[in-house]
Design a protein around this nucleic acid. Structure first.
Lengths: 212, 212
DNA sequence: GTGTTTTTCACACGAAAGTGGTATTGCGGC
DNA sequence: GCCGCAATACCACTTTCGTGTGAAAAACAC
């Protein structure tokens, strides 16, 4: 074909200087097509739903609707559009909120425009560009102890076994049978572990120990 | 210094040919020091605990203890050691199990030895090498619907609101007050939603809809 | 040893939760 | 209009849960 489909790239960046720099960098790449450079999330979201960009370069720190919320709404409106976050925020909250919102790339603002353009290519090709440090934090998050729940240390062995079955939804009677105890003993364990956890019901205990 | 600390790299790979190829590639890099090439997880784990490698190149498909279990034990024994998975398995299960076990790099076996060596450098420098497709799957996992729970679609709007409060641990009385209903209405909603979900208790419902 | 914690069990009571049936209102579809 | 569903509400009843009190044997700490 004489005209291979170009990558349609939209920009959401409140800093006009940076926005222009990005737009220029995109313009130098014949495979890219600037599909709108917006100063606010609202501007992007006001676009006609039928006209989707392939990639949105998204700043996080925006006036009004922030980049995370904007990402969420972009993915809701145009599920096939890829969002490349490009921000100064390099805290874990911003990172993981953005990823949960649907971003599939995450660059820090120290990336030069040329790198951003390269990232757009990678993103469009099915990759997920991110800085090395970012990647490490993402991977490390999988092995992070999901349950720091310290209170569990307060419980005795038997209480933990009872708790486990409480979590499964077993009734006292079933717990008693499963652990070869009398129901009264189960009651006692439950009472004591509730007290140690400072809760007053099964659901409270589970929410405290295994927050969803 | 005349001798900058070299990166100590251990290998766990049951295919002797590939193992040797990796060892050779490492030998060509002056910044690396081969710290043992093992054919099984057991061989690596039998090493003296005081002698840690900086990086372990880990195959997943191993006889005996598999690569995921080995990774877990490596991280338990030598927390500072970085594990670079290098495998033919590119299914999500292998990937995420390895990451949860503590791997901070994931390459597919189509990577040439030179690329593996580059990945070792990156890993040791605080990065997380992985193929582009891998990265995308990892990032996409964050925005994956954590609650595929289809049954929730069966519930009416009001039932969902009641369920939400059941999940929080509210008592019927509190739910009634919060939603400006009578307790009897709350009972009705609970009864109906339990029936739709095919469960018989609050905990069952939560376990069904929000598996931990 | 003595004292504390853990584990076991019992009785009793009130508060929730779960289950059955029934009924009225309102809304949207055929 | 009629049917079905959602939402509201009440009554009655059983079961389960949460809690107070008491107690005894075993394990563990000092």
């Amino acid at each position: 074909m004489s005209e291979p489909a170009r990558i349609r790239v939209a920009i959401v960046e409140d800093d006009a200087v940076l926005r222009e720099a990005l737009a220029e960098a995109l313009a130098t790449d014949p495979a890219m097509e600037l599909h709108g450079a917006h100063g606010t999330a609202e501007d992007l979201l006001a676009r006609h739903p039928a006209v989707a960009a392939d990639v949105v370069i998204m700043d996080l720190n925006l006036p009004g609707i922030d980049g995370v919320a904007c990402t969420r709404r972009v993915k809701a409106m145009w599920p096939a559009t890829q969002v490349l976050v490009c921000t100064v925020q390099d805290d874990d909250d911003s990172l993981f909120n953005a990823l949960c919102a649907g971003a599939t790339g995450y660059l820090l603002k120290d990336a030069r425009p040329a790198e951003v353009v390269r990232a757009v290519r990678m993103l469009h090709a099915g990759g997920s560009p991110m800085g090395t440090g970012i990647a490490r934090r993402v991977l490390a998050s999988f092995s992070a102890p999901l349950r720091p729940a310290k209170e569990i240390a307060l419980l005795s062995q038997r209480e933990r076994e009872v708790l486990e079955r409480l979590a499964r939804g077993d009734r006292y009677k079933e717990i008693a049978e499963g652990l070869h105890l009398s129901i009264e003993t189960v009651r006692t364990h439950v009472r004591n572990l509730y007290h140690k956890l400072q809760v007053g019901s099964r659901t409270d205990a589970l929410n405290k120990l295994y927050p969803r």
